[in-house]
Design a protein around this nucleic acid. Structure first.
Lengths: 237, 237
DNA sequence: CTTTGACTGTGACCTGGTTCACGTTTTCCA
DNA sequence: TGGAAAACGTGAACCAGGTCACAGTCAAAG
């Protein structure tokens, strides 16, 4: 296919809709139709895309960059629930009913999103039922992930929890290299701590000891090299 | 409507399908059609309805009774993820693809279920798109609940977590009474502990102290009287 | 390239929850 | 209905992870 067909000025010449798994069942012409419904928006690092408690009537699809979905707890802590990156979406809860968001969403870096109005999306679902099934599939995956997280937080040791996050990130953000898998961390140490319900210090200490054991190697603060994936996997069984 | 229309021998003369929110959008005739697709099954307390890792190709709807969905962790602990009761369903993950269950399901008491084959259900969804939307809605509610649970387990104190469960159970299993809300607990102390990632002893101790503070009153092991719902709600803010 | 603020690592101490142990109570079902 | 088995409550000791404090390091912006 000619990639110029997918051109869209607001998206740096990527047909955002076409790269999102939600719309993989559509052909080019249908995609062009979807494109007309989409509004684009850009956010700088640290900007909020969605406030906790905000009621929106649209679906937001991440086209470039990364965001974190999190809640602020009464005692001033932060619980990170999701990292959304290219192709992920949020706001699916307002597809069915107008509901206040139970988390805030903040850009972790320069982020571009595609926004589609609730009504338009509902019509799309009616026209192309496969899209609805895709949404359902993603929701089920998200349930899977949360179920795992709950098991981790409820019953696992600290090192198992950290191994678990590292493997999750390796899956999502890792690149193969001769020495092992290099992970571009989406979160700081503190962010990781807030993702798995620990403190920055504990994460720091455990990762240091994992490095001493030869399991991982920390490269600056933003990268980690997984030297022994198998051992990590074993430790969370 | 004449209730005899809803009669079904296997269901003790309740039209199981009609009582499930999934099918509320259907009329009587459509319900009768759904009924033909349904197989019934009964389980005694302690019986397993689903094994961890099992691959099924059907959707299970609880018609009577209660079940717990849980995972056994490596260190011999149990993490309870859901309590399903009348009207709840599970197995939705294999509506989309054949996937191994990541939890086991066990009857907490005598339980009757309605089972509908994956293919049949998919056809129903195609025929009545509202059913698909209902499934999506339930999945979103389930996400909400898990997101709350994760915040609880990640950042909250023990008493806040217990208050939170009690309020959840009050919502789902509570009955108003002159003194307060009486909760028929679906779980033992140990079960509650496994639901919120604590030990039996800790739950026991905290509930005793909550009783001393006049917040709750324990009636035997299976009932709890909420004397001061407002105070509990305040404690988890 | 340098500066500045944010992030990270680590030691010492503290605390809340787990573990272990055991006596009591409740539940269930034969 | 009685008796076994399961569930519960509670004390004491322990310890993993949190808290606090501070020094070292990194990285983004000018």
């Amino acid at each position: 296919m000619d990639s110029s067909l997918y051109t869209c000025n607001s998206c740096q010449h990527k047909l955002c809709a076409g790269r999102v798994s939600l719309f993989t069942s559509l052909d080019t012409e249908q995609l062009m139709q979807v494109m007309k419904l989409i509004v684009h928006k850009e956010y700088k690092k640290g900007e909020l895309l969605l406030y906790e408690g905000e009621v929106r009537n649209d679906l937001v699809i991440v086209n470039k960059g990364q965001v974190k979905a999190f809640r602020n707890t009464a005692d001033g802590k932060e619980q990170i629930l999701y990292i959304f990156s290219e192709g992920d979406f949020f706001g699916e809860k307002n597809l069915l009913r107008d509901q206040a968001s139970n988390y805030a969403v903040e850009a972790l870096e320069e982020t571009h999103v595609c926004i589609i109005r609730k009504d338009d999306f509902q019509n799309l679902v009616k026209q192309y039922p496969d899209i609805g099934l895709k949404v359902m599939e993603v929701l089920c995956q998200r349930l899977d992930r949360l179920e795992n997280t709950i098991e981790n937080m409820g019953t696992r040791t600290v090192s198992a929890r950290i191994s678990s996050v590292l493997l999750e990130f390796a899956e999502k953000f890792g690149k193969e290299s001769p020495q092992g898998i290099i992970i571009d961390l989406p979160l700081s140490r503190e962010g990781i701590a807030n993702y798995i319900g620990l403190t920055r210090e504990t994460v720091s200490r455990k990762m240091s000891s994992m490095q001493d054991e030869g399991l991982i190697e920390m490269i600056g603060n933003k990268k980690i090299l997984l030297l022994n994936k198998a051992a990590l996997e074993k430790s969370i069984e």
